[in-house]
């Protein structure tokens, strides 16, 4: 059996004063090296789920295993957080130090990496997200996308096996969103780092390998993006949307145009539409 990075079994979680559970009976499983997405509107429980995945919250029912370690066991907690880092939504509220380089060092200092090894690991982590030239800058002089890449570097330096992104692009402009997503895709592709991408942007979810859609604390739908987005009505009923290209393809198909299934991205949709239209005019 392939290695499972995250193994969530029938997990529920309720905040202390809350009557309703924020997460209810969720099960999911993410294999090593994968790029999975969790999609859902605000308040669907996706951020709570994220915090259950590295022991920031502990499940009230069920089990969460990270790299085979149970998050409920106190002894595992630092190892789990070292293996599965987390990038949060607000770029400003996760940078601790007044200099980029010092911030990347923060995690290393916490886990007791010897001083002599630090500069090399910091340099490598910064260059992996193309931020090495900014090592001496103050964080507040950087753009949102740059700050998020610093946050990623801070985690990379700790050499994790997985990173959880909790709506890491929600507060960025399109440019920042693109640069962060591209950096993460590269890490997944080149370093085999497992990614769990939590978002409400359909275009991003469409580029992941597998999608869980959450609604009211439960997993309401799951499948490959092609499977999930091929039924726009169902996705829209969950107060979410479908990528524009998939929506158009769906409408054309319903109106009778014989397009193939599973179209998601603008480029492939355009090609398929052009192919079908040309076929028609030649015939």
């Amino acid at each position: 059996m392939e290695n499972r990075i995250f193994e969530v079994e029938n997990v529920s979680f309720a905040y202390e004063e809350a009557e309703e559970k924020a997460v209810q009976g969720v099960s999911l499983s993410v294999p090593e090296g994968a790029f999975y997405a969790v999609l859902g509107q605000n308040g669907s429980g996706k951020s709570t789920l994220a915090k259950l995945l590295n022991g920031l919250y502990l499940p009230t029912e069920g089990k969460v295993h990270v790299c085979g370690l149970d998050t409920a066991d106190d002894q595992n907690i630092w190892e789990i957080r070292k293996q599965a880092g987390m990038v949060f939504q607000n770029p400003d509220n996760q940078i601790v130090a007044t200099l980029v380089e010092d911030d990347v060092a923060f995690g290393l200092e916490n886990i007791g990496v010897p001083t002599a090894q630090m500069p090399e690991r910091i340099e490598k982590a910064l260059s992996d997200v193309d931020m090495l030239p900014f090592r001496d800058r103050a964080p507040h002089t950087l753009s949102g996308g740059q700050k998020q890449r610093i946050a990623i570097a801070g985690i990379l330096a700790m050499e994790p096996r997985a990173i959880i992104f909790d709506e890491a692009t929600a507060m960025l402009d399109p440019q920042g969103r693109k640069e962060v997503f591209a950096a993460v895709e590269k890490l997944n592709r080149e370093k085999g780092i497992t990614v769990l991408w939590i978002t409400h942007f359909m275009e991003e979810a469409a580029r992941c390998q597998y999608v869980y859609i959450m609604e009211d604390g439960r997993i309401a739908m799951e499948g490959t993006p092609a499977e999930v987005f091929s039924v726009p009505e169902k996705v829209q009923a969950l107060r979410l949307d479908v990528p524009a290209a998939a929506r158009l393809a769906h409408r054309l198909r319903q109106a009778g145009m014989p397009l193939k299934e599973g179209l998601l991205h603008p480029e492939e949709t355009a090609e398929e539409v052009a192919r079908v239209c040309r076929l028609n005019s030649k015939a």
Partner: peptide, 27 residues
């Protein structure tokens, strides 16, 4: 306060657990 809450969470996620056993970048 919101920032403080967020930051505490982020620091914890980055294995911060006080000064014990910490090493330093700048010696």
């Amino acid at each position: 306060f919101r920032r403080a809450g967020d930051l505490a969470m982020a620091m914890e996620a980055r294995c911060y657990h006080g000064g014990k056993g910490r090493t330093r970048l700048h010696v």
